[in-house]
Simulated assay, not measured.
Amino acid sequence: MRYNGLLSTLPRELKIFIGAFVVVLSIGFYTGLLFVNETSTSSAQGIEENYLGNEADEEAEIMKFKKSDREMLTIVHTHILSMSFIFFLLGGILWFANLSKNLKLFLTVEPLLSVVLTFGGIYFLWSGVLWMKYVIIFSGTLMTATFTVSSLLVLYQLIFHSSSSQLKK
């Protein structure tokens, strides 16, 4: 089955639908990043404090306490499920773009690995493996970068690419 480049051959109505979905998905994704920035900052220390607390720091502006077992399981469970679904849907659309197979493979598999590393890393950090905060930062950054690149590639191909058959019409 030939699927490379099918995105640009879709009817206008489907392109609008897919484009609207990717825009709304992006709004949700980046709003989540704003929330992360509000709650933990993107520094290694901020991530550590968000899950392990900062009760020992008497000069802390905002007192944070170590997350409970229940909170951690909820965070890890909901994020792994929802993020895997987000990347499955975006990746499924990306496979129909006109791109190299290797690029598509990287952009669709890497974020799934980063989801496991990021949220597994958060659990291990909470369990006391403090160096995982660096894995969390790296994998979270890579996950965000692949989401951004994938979204932009899909939108670009929906808006600016048209098949040769559409150009003849």
Rank of each mutant, 00 (worst) to 15 (best):
Thr41Val: 12
Glu71Ser: 09
Glu48Ser: 08
Thr74Cys: 11
Pro11Gln: 02
Ile136His: 00
Thr148Lys: 10
Asn50Ser: 08
Met132Ala: 14
Phe106Arg: 14
Val22Cys: 02
Leu34Glu: 10
Gly46Val: 02
Trp95His: 06
Ile47Asp: 02
Leu105Cys: 11
Val109Cys: 13
Val135Lys: 01
Glu55Thr: 10
Phe87Trp: 13
Leu155Asp: 04
Asn37His: 03
Glu38Tyr: 05
Ala44Trp: 00
Ser151Glu: 12
Trp95Gly: 02
Phe96Val: 03
Thr118Cys: 03
Ala44Asp: 02
Val116Ala: 15
Ser42Thr: 08
Arg12Ser: 15
Ser26Tyr: 09
Glu61Met: 04
Gly46Lys: 00
Leu167Cys: 13
Leu142Ile: 11
Leu73Val: 06
Phe119Cys: 13
Gly128Ala: 06
Leu7Gln: 01
Glu48Lys: 13
Phe96Ala: 04
Lys133Met: 01
Tyr3Thr: 05
Tyr30Asn: 07
Ser68His: 08
Phe87Asp: 07
Thr39Gln: 00
Leu107Asn: 07
Lys66Gly: 05
Leu112Thr: 01
Arg70Ala: 15
Thr31Arg: 14
Asp69Gln: 12
Val129Phe: 07
Ile27Trp: 06
Val109Ile: 15
Ile159Asp: 02
Ile137Ala: 09
Gln45Ser: 07
Tyr123Asp: 04
Val116Met: 12
Phe119His: 13
Leu25Phe: 14
Gly121Lys: 01
Asn54Val: 08
Thr31Trp: 15
Ile75Pro: 05
Leu14Gly: 04
Gln45Tyr: 02
Gly140Pro: 00
Thr9Arg: 14
Trp126Ile: 04
Leu89Trp: 11
Trp126Asn: 05
Leu94Pro: 09
Thr141Leu: 02
Val154Asp: 08
Phe65Lys: 13
Glu38Gln: 04
Phe35Val: 14
Leu153Val: 12
Leu7Glu: 03
Val135Leu: 14
Leu130Ala: 05
Ile27Met: 09
Ile62Pro: 14
Ala97Tyr: 11
Gln157Lys: 02
Ser150Ala: 08
Ile136Met: 02
Leu33Thr: 06
Tyr134Ser: 04
Glu38Ala: 06
Phe35His: 06
Tyr156Ser: 15
Asn102Val: 15
Leu25Pro: 06
Ile80Ser: 08
Phe88Met: 12
Leu81Ser: 11
Ile137Arg: 09
Phe21Trp: 10
Thr108Asn: 10
Ile137Lys: 08
Pro111Ile: 15
Lys15Leu: 06
Gly128Lys: 13
Ser100Val: 09
Asn98Thr: 07
Gly120Arg: 03
Ser164Asp: 10
Asn37Leu: 00
Phe96Cys: 03
Asn37Gln: 01
Arg12Glu: 15
Ser150His: 03
Val115Ser: 10
Lys168Pro: 03
Tyr30Gln: 01
Ser163Ile: 00
Thr146Arg: 08
Ser68Phe: 04
Asn4Lys: 00
His77Gly: 13
Thr118Ile: 00
Lys64Arg: 14
Asn54Ile: 04
Gly32Leu: 11
Tyr156Pro: 08
Ser43Tyr: 02
Phe88Arg: 05
Ile136Thr: 06
Leu33Met: 12
Asn4Cys: 05
Ile62Tyr: 02
Gly121His: 00
Glu59Tyr: 03
Leu117Val: 05
Phe17Pro: 03
Thr148His: 11
Pro11Tyr: 02
Tyr30Met: 06
Ile137Pro: 04
Glu13Ala: 11
Ile16Ser: 11
Ser42Pro: 14
Val24Cys: 14
Lys133Thr: 03
Pro111Phe: 14
Thr141Phe: 03
Leu94Gln: 04
